[in-house]
């Protein structure tokens, strides 16, 4: 087990290095400059800006400097766009936001997804099954940029229950709509995986035996069927959790949360290289950690798996 974890961790390091390298190469080949506005600064200012951010150095030196700062000082450098912020500042401010609404979305998605999936499996091939599956696919398929304006129309303008956006430190009323919009994009997958693995478990020998012994259905499900049925769900939850806590550009833009999700895309558009790199590394690292965590958890729950 420990050797397994150790082996996985040794893979993690080159993975992150490759990630940084890919981003660096893409950045260098990108046309446009982070300092370009509609009014292009004169060459002498441009030169100074490039000197200030080290862009006048040869590529290999920028690369080495960057790696050194990231690895030894945990410093992602200053943002190219926001003059009074470092990338560390941006992450420190935006990540807690997405972490908060992402975490709640995760909880909601798991509860809803598993509930819907189990219901559909128990009532296999009945209208309830079709309805659950239909609801899951439907809510996942409606793009968030359609869902968000409708949520605000209903909850803010018509009912006046919730503020239409903002974060204000993350009070509950600012969290609800982002959570609804984000969790619907994930719970359908959870529901579908739960449903099919539950169906399989319900058809297996030991459940048939349990049922034959006359145990009540609810007890069979909860005591015997749920745990093995959720194993496949677990492997989906790792990437899903990372996806949710790093937020979504649509959620951040439509609900003005100030979260990290929008920087992911906007920094590429703004040529804010340092922010882009910082967030790529953050997401990559989280993905590696949670994939590992899920695998360890998997091994721990399912004794059949040996590493």
């Amino acid at each position: 087990m420990f050797t397994y974890i150790a082996r996985r961790l040794t893979v993690a390091v080159p993975t992150i290095l490759i990630l940084i390298t890919i981003s660096f190469v893409l950045m260098w080949s990108a046309p446009g400059s982070p300092f370009m506005g509609e009014k292009l600064p004169p060459p002498e200012v441009m030169a100074n800006l490039e000197a200030k951010y080290g862009l006048d150095q040869p590529y290999w030196k920028q690369y080495v400097d960057y790696l050194t700062n990231v690895i030894f000082h945990f410093d992602f450098g200053p943002s190219f766009k926001f003059k009074d912020r470092t990338v560390n500042d941006i992450i420190a401010q935006g990540f807690p936001v997405t972490l908060t609404y992402g975490f709640w979305s995760f909880i909601v998605a798991v509860i809803f997804g598993v509930g819907l999936g189990v219901t559909a499996a128990i009532r296999h091939n009945t209208w309830l099954d079709y309805l659950s599956v239909g609801f899951a696919i439907g809510s996942q398929s409606i793009p968030n940029y359609v869902m968000a304006p409708i949520l605000v129309l209903v909850f803010t303008l018509w009912l006046g229950w919730l503020p239409g956006g903002g974060w204000e430190g993350g009070t509950w009323d600012h969290i609800i709509m982002p959570v609804i919009a984000l969790s619907t994009s994930y719970f359908a997958s959870i529901a579908r995986i739960t449903r099919s693995s539950m169906l399989e478990v319900l058809n297996s020998g030991f459940i048939r035996t349990a049922k034959a012994k006359g145990l009540p259905m609810s007890r069979v499900i909860l005591k015997h069927a749920l745990k093995p049925a959720l194993l496949p769900v677990l492997s989906y939850l790792g990437p899903a959790f990372v996806g949710m806590v790093t937020g979504s550009v649509i959620i951040d833009q439509y609900f003005s949360t100030g979260g990290i999700g929008q920087f992911f895309v906007n920094s590429a558009f703004n040529r804010d290289y340092s922010t882009m790199m910082g967030i790529t590394i953050l997401v990559g690292t989280l993905t590696i950690i949670f994939n590992l965590l899920v695998d360890v958890l998997y091994a721990w729950i399912d004794p059949k798996i040996r590493y």
Binding site: P149, P163, G165, G166, Q253
Partner: peptide, 13 residues
């Protein structure tokens, strides 16, 4: 000053 990227969303608010 609120930053709202989407103008439809801002107008509804």
């Amino acid at each position: 000053r609120l930053i709202i990227n989407d103008e439809t969303q801002a107008f509804t608010r």
